[in-house]
Nucleic acid binder design. Sequence first.
DNA 1: TTACTGCGGATTTTCGAAATAATCAAACCT
DNA 2: AGGTTTGATTATTTCGAAAATCCGCAGTAA
Lengths: 244, 244
Amino acid sequence: MGNSLKPAGETRAGDVLARMRSDIISCALKPGSKLRFETLRELYEVSFSTLREALSRLVAEGLVVAEGQRGFLVAPVSLFDLNDLTDVRVLVERQCIKLAIDRGDDRWEADIMAAFHRMDRLQSRLGASYYLSDEWATLHSVFHLSLVAACGSPNLLEIRQKLFERAHRYRRMSSQFRPQWRAKDVEHKMIMDRVIARDTATAQDLVDRHIRETTENVIAHASHLFAQGGTADAFRRPDPVAAE
Amino acid sequence: MGNSLKPAGETRAGDVLARMRSDIISCALKPGSKLRFETLRELYEVSFSTLREALSRLVAEGLVVAEGQRGFLVAPVSLFDLNDLTDVRVLVERQCIKLAIDRGDDRWEADIMAAFHRMDRLQSRLGASYYLSDEWATLHSVFHLSLVAACGSPNLLEIRQKLFERAHRYRRMSSQFRPQWRAKDVEHKMIMDRVIARDTATAQDLVDRHIRETTENVIAHASHLFAQGGTADAFRRPDPVAAE
DNA sequence: TTACTGCGGATTTTCGAAATAATCAAACCT
DNA sequence: AGGTTTGATTATTTCGAAAATCCGCAGTAA
């Protein structure tokens, strides 16, 4: 009823999901902190069931972890996880790039240039602090997606997107400490050029470096925020299929 | 407390989740069919909320798809998805194998041999129809996991496990038509030998072939069950971050 | 002191009814 | 007749209370 400015057809759970995701990525909800239903119910003004729905989906995205019958936690951050995440992203992104270059058509190239242009223009308009803007983050995400959208593998793209979002939280953690972000815009342009030139090997290497250098940047500026000794135990590994 | 033979600490949602997963993999719940709450509520004897919880988690595993406010569907199967899934699995599995061989220790080797032995013994005991047994399927899963358990990447292992489960449904679809399964036991032994010998390249190629040949087998015997023209539209791709 | 046991408060999980949204068909207008 | 709106039916989503579970603490015994 009173919902005035919602995209229409948006469920309340979907709305809460988006808000919680945003709050987790921005660290308004601190990594490793316990998510109590009563607290969240007041904060987001929804009921238990709706919360549970949103929480479940966030678990799927790896931004929240479920602890048996002991509730939910904001997924902890750690140096170990960041490095692991980075390695997996490089593997996936290299393959996406290769496939997209093999399979992409003219439309794909045009979409890349359009996405770059939008991101680039907003960057100029916002000036030095563009990296703090949610809008820029969205266009940045769209640009990187456009590079690989033609890869033809829905499964790979879905995995890629989830990893990208998790990495986004780490990037965001360091950006709050770094008034001057490094010149990613130049890197983006180079990547775009090599992708459209169908230079697979170079494009892969550039993306690889792009990801790893960002990670190194995060480690340099934000690793003091990570959980101490945060190794594997902070992340439950998949059940070994409950042997027997 | 009256729960006599449950592993203790199992939530009802977790129980329903396991049963539904089993029913989807065995195709008792047909691919592409609509999952109506009222029907499921009777079938599994739980309430709406509990169902919703289980459904959400199955969406995360890719065995169920959610359609906005129009309910849930058993994830459709298609030739396109099977081929895509296979390609992604090969990518992931090759990397897992490489890392595990680089990082594995004696304990890891011992676990592989133990897992193989259990699977092998059960196979002998069950005879020709071992591939229909859920127990064998579990030991098979454990064996394949043991090969890569030492890879050191929780993120990669989690992705791998989800893909493995989805592929399991396809394998299961063809096994019901094939009274004589091909000699996978020989392949398993060869893979184990090459992995323990730390022969990375050969081990990767063997696993690659193992996966692809299984897929070809499924296509040969069960592709007539797949959705017609089941291309990308049967699987929603990740939202382009809802630009704007 | 240390380990075990049982109680009390706090938190999560489950339930079924109420509210909301989608579907389908008959009646209506063009 | 073809296409659109309206209204009844069905299914999904949301709600908050009730049941089950967990956690800390006090009391007791070894």
